Amino acid sequence: MKSKYPYSKELRKTISFSNINLEEKVRDGSLAKVAGFFSKQVSSYKSKIAKVRKDTCQSFDQKSITFYEFTPKKEESLYPAMIYYHGGGFMFPIQKAMMNNSSLYAENTGVKVFLPEYRLALDSPCDTTLEDCYAMLKFIFENAEKLKVDKNRVFLYGDSAGGCLAAGIALLNRDRNHYPLCGQMLIYPVCDNERGKYESMEKYKDAAWSKNSNEQMWRIYLSRGVEKETYTIPMKNELHDLPPAYIEPQQFDTLRDEAIAYANKLKNAGVDVDLNVISGSYHGFDADLKSPLVKRVFEKRYEVIRKFIQ
Rank of each mutant, 00 (worst) to 15 (best):
E238L: 06
N212Y: 14
T232A: 15
I247F: 09
S200T: 11
K228L: 08
Y231V: 05
K203C: 08
L222H: 05
M201K: 01
F252K: 03
R195G: 07
L222E: 12
Q250D: 14
R219H: 08
K211H: 11
N214C: 04
Y198S: 02
Q250F: 03
A207M: 07
E229L: 10
P244Q: 08
L242C: 01
E248Y: 02
W218K: 02
A208M: 13
S210K: 07
P244N: 03
Y221P: 01
P249W: 10
Y204F: 15
P244Y: 04
M217C: 09
T254Y: 05
E227K: 12
D253K: 04
R256L: 05
E194P: 00
F252P: 02
K236P: 00
M201P: 00
K211L: 09
E202W: 05
A208Q: 07
K211R: 13
S213N: 09
R219T: 07
D192F: 08
E227Y: 11
Q250N: 12
M235V: 08
Q250P: 00
V190L: 12
W209L: 07
A208R: 06
I220F: 04
K197D: 07
I233K: 02
V190S: 10
E202C: 06
L255T: 01
I233G: 00
R256K: 06
Q251R: 04
L222G: 01
G225W: 14
P243K: 03
E248D: 06
E199M: 12
N214P: 02
N237P: 07
L255Q: 02
D253I: 06
K197M: 13
Q216H: 13
G196Q: 13
Q250M: 13
K236T: 15
S210Y: 12
K236G: 01
N212L: 02
H240D: 15
R195D: 10
Y231T: 06
R219K: 08
Y198M: 06
G225I: 11
A245M: 08
R219Y: 10
P234V: 04
S210F: 14
G196K: 15
D253F: 10
E229H: 06
V226C: 14
E238Q: 10
V190I: 13
I220D: 00
N212D: 03
K236E: 15
E229P: 00
K228Q: 10
G225L: 11
E215F: 14
P243W: 03
S213Q: 06
V190M: 11
D241H: 10
L239N: 11
L255G: 01
R256S: 00
E248S: 08
Q216T: 13
K211A: 09
D257L: 13
R195Y: 15
Y231K: 01
A245H: 09
R195P: 00
L239I: 09
Y221F: 15
S213E: 08
Y221L: 07
G196W: 09
I220M: 02
